[in-house]
Amino acid sequence: MNKKVAIIGGGIVGASAAYYLSTLPGGDQINVTLYDDGVGQATSAAAGIISPWLSKRRNQQWYQLAKDGATTLMTLARRANLSTDVYHQTGTIVTRTNEKDLHDLYVLAQERREDAPDMGEIKQLDEQQVKQRMPFLTRSQPGIFISGGARVDGAALVEKLLAQAQQVNLIVKRERVKLDDHGKVITSMGPQRFDQVIIAAGPWINELLKPMGINVDVRPQKGQLLELSIPDFPNQENMPVMMPEGERDIIPFGQGKLIVGATHDDEGQFDLSITPEATQDLMTSAQAFVDSLSADNIIRSKVGTRAYTSDFAPFFGRLQSHPHLLVASGLGASGLTTGPLIGRLLAGTLIYGGTPDWSNYEKPLSTYLS
């Protein structure tokens, strides 16, 4: 009899886990049901930059996870045959206005490439060279170009991964579920029996685990981004993405589409409304580099809710108190970078068992769950 597995949450971790459960050896012996009501999901509201290598975060476990996550996503894009409108390795430009800071960033990039060959080519660019690569900019800053950087459409990525898994062993249920005090999944059709359950519900994990008396160190954070229309420059779909110093990310797509964002609103929590304050914040960032932009260029806004832990690090693994439950949360703004690797690790341990050592990627689960 095939093993029955549930995944709660269809964001980047849940969708990646579902994909790997359909492609890893042994996945054909598993029937997977994924539950997600689609409300507030951070991944579906995100357009992200995959470029963790120049991060100044001191948490080396996080950096290792993000570095290996970027590699995982590169491999996943090839194996899942993702089109360039979903994932595209366009390169990244990280800007600095201070000459010494720019030099220090270039030195850091050279050091990081020694154990991160996927960074690819590294170049220091002046303002004019940045504008040559991103000609829609009316003002630019000097920066470091990393050819291995990429952009990804979160909603499209999740859709593609789930669609491929549905051809093998996945059923998707668009509903919100709960857990009882024993960790059994309670659906609209009543309690359902599953051999193992992956809980990848972002900031909603607290609500799910509360019936079992488990508290989770996770808080919700609202994020909003803008999709703008600009003139369709030649080869725009291949332009690099930009991470400007002190401003929101600038992400060009093809056909005159420009994404700016996203905001980080701790007060907004689960509020999914589009606010004028966030819209103005994003427009101000965009206008710092493209001065012709106005409200008339806004196509739409997207809002989602991220999950953060108190030390800004993600966690994932199997609950000792309830061994049939595997959890993941706290990915914050790095979800599109770290999520595919976390999903693959959870899928692997679900299929093959054992107690893998992930201490190079994270602190013990007891740091975040009590």
Rank of each mutant, 00 (worst) to 15 (best):
V177G: 02
N98Q: 14
N215D: 15
D118Q: 13
G339A: 00
P323L: 04
S310D: 10
D291G: 10
N98I: 12
A288D: 13
P340I: 06
S147L: 05
L272R: 02
G48Y: 07
R57M: 10
D115W: 07
A18W: 00
A150C: 06
V152M: 12
Y368N: 03
D265P: 00
S55P: 02
I298D: 03
V303L: 01
D104F: 05
R344T: 09
G154P: 04
S294W: 01
L272V: 05
Q61S: 11
A163C: 05
M212K: 00
I49D: 04
V158W: 05
S292H: 15
Y20D: 09
D118S: 11
R176Q: 13
D126L: 06
L170Q: 07
G183W: 06
K3A: 04
I199E: 06
L76Q: 09
E247H: 15
D217M: 05
G223F: 04
P314R: 05
M283A: 07
V13Y: 09
E99L: 11
H182R: 14
P135D: 05
Q132N: 08
A80Q: 03
E362G: 11
A66S: 14
L179S: 08
Q64R: 09
D115E: 12
L170I: 04
A333Y: 05
R344Y: 13
D281K: 15
I230P: 09
G10D: 10
Y19C: 08
V290S: 10
R248E: 15
T97D: 14
D36S: 08
D271G: 03
R58C: 01
G38R: 00
V172D: 10
D118E: 15
E121C: 01
S273G: 12
L282G: 10
K257Q: 10
G149P: 01
L65D: 10
A46N: 04
L179A: 04
D180S: 02
T305E: 11
P234R: 08
A165Q: 10
I351C: 01
G9T: 04
V32H: 02
S140F: 11
Q60L: 15
N98P: 08
Y20K: 09
Y63C: 13
N206V: 14
A45P: 04
P117C: 07
G304M: 01
Q255C: 07
L157V: 00
D101F: 10
E247Y: 15
G254P: 06
F253W: 15
A313H: 10
K160L: 11
V158C: 09
G40P: 08
